Simulated scan of single mutants.
Amino acid sequence: MSSNLWLVRQELLVASLQHQPLLLVIRPELEDLAASGSGSGLLAQVQQLHAAGLRNLEVAWVDQPGWMGFMQRVQDHCPGLNLGAASVTVSKALNDLSLLDLSYAMAPCWCPELVEQARGLGVLLVPGVFSPTEVHQAIRFGCRVVKLFPAANLGPGYWSCLQAPLGPLPFVIAAGGLDVSDLPVWLEAGHGAVALGRRVVGSPPAFQALVDWLHQSTSQR
């Protein structure tokens, strides 16, 4: 049953990203985790982006008592947001993800043991891949979705070069070092979606650019 849920959640994530090919990744600070109610400035920004049409959000997992509470506040204040966890590298994180029943989680690297453990819990853990070997192993493992990381170091043309030797490739999320202005370039190069980091939220001009992109993409649908 848990394995079937893992497969279903892959398809649901792909469908959500096909609807809006953007993932925002945020990293809450200690003050965000400690804030009660809507007292977090980061949560207020997330609410603003959600109101502008943001569909997919990742919150970096941290081994702090307040992380679960912060995630629950995001769920309460942003209903309908496709919420996941980022930076998952240890087994301990999977228990939190299972308790919250999150739609998905992301790992920065390829760790088949962790992906297997997540699949056993019914948790979708999308692996980070970098080399052709890692991509090939993820495909053989049954991963329908992977994250290319760090994408900026590889360039937008890298992924398409893998198709000839490896055959059909999984749905790919480009992540690492990208900005709002990179969205059209990487999407046109064949990437299924693009992940943007916390620095977009931390910079007023970048934040406004993201709000504008969300308004524009929503109006075009």
Rank of each mutant, 00 (worst) to 15 (best):
M68C: 06
G69K: 06
G69A: 15
M71R: 04
Q72S: 09
R73G: 00
R73W: 00
R73Q: 07
V74Q: 00
V74I: 05
V74H: 01
V74G: 00
Q75T: 01
D76E: 12
D76V: 02
D76G: 02
C78S: 10
L81H: 03
N82Q: 06
L83R: 03
K92C: 05
A93D: 02
L94F: 06
L94P: 03
N95T: 14
D96T: 11
L97M: 09
L97Q: 06
L99E: 12
L99F: 05
L99D: 12
L100G: 03
S103L: 09
A105F: 11
A105G: 14
A105L: 07
P108N: 09
P108Q: 07
P108H: 05
P108I: 03
W110C: 05
C111I: 14
E113A: 09
E116H: 12
Q117W: 02
A118G: 10
A118H: 08
R119E: 10
G120Q: 13
L121E: 11
L124N: 00
L125R: 11
V126W: 11
P127Q: 06
V129C: 11
F130Y: 14
F130D: 13
S131E: 13
S131N: 15
S131C: 14
P132R: 04
P132V: 08
T133A: 14
T133M: 09
E134S: 09
H136F: 13
H136T: 07
Q137Y: 00
Q137E: 03
A138P: 08
A138W: 09
I139Q: 10
I139T: 04
R140T: 02
R140I: 01
F141I: 01
C143V: 03
C143G: 07
R144I: 02
R144C: 01
V145C: 05
V145F: 07
V146A: 04
V146D: 04
V146Q: 03
K147V: 13
K147C: 11
L148W: 00
L148V: 12
F149G: 07
P150E: 12
P150K: 12
A151R: 14
A152C: 14
A152M: 12
N153R: 12
N153C: 13
G155N: 13
P156V: 07
P156F: 10
Y158D: 08
W159K: 15
S160I: 06
S160N: 10
Q163I: 14
L166A: 10
L166E: 11
P168A: 05
A174D: 13
A174S: 15
G176C: 14
L178M: 10
L178H: 08
V180Y: 03
S181I: 08
S181K: 13
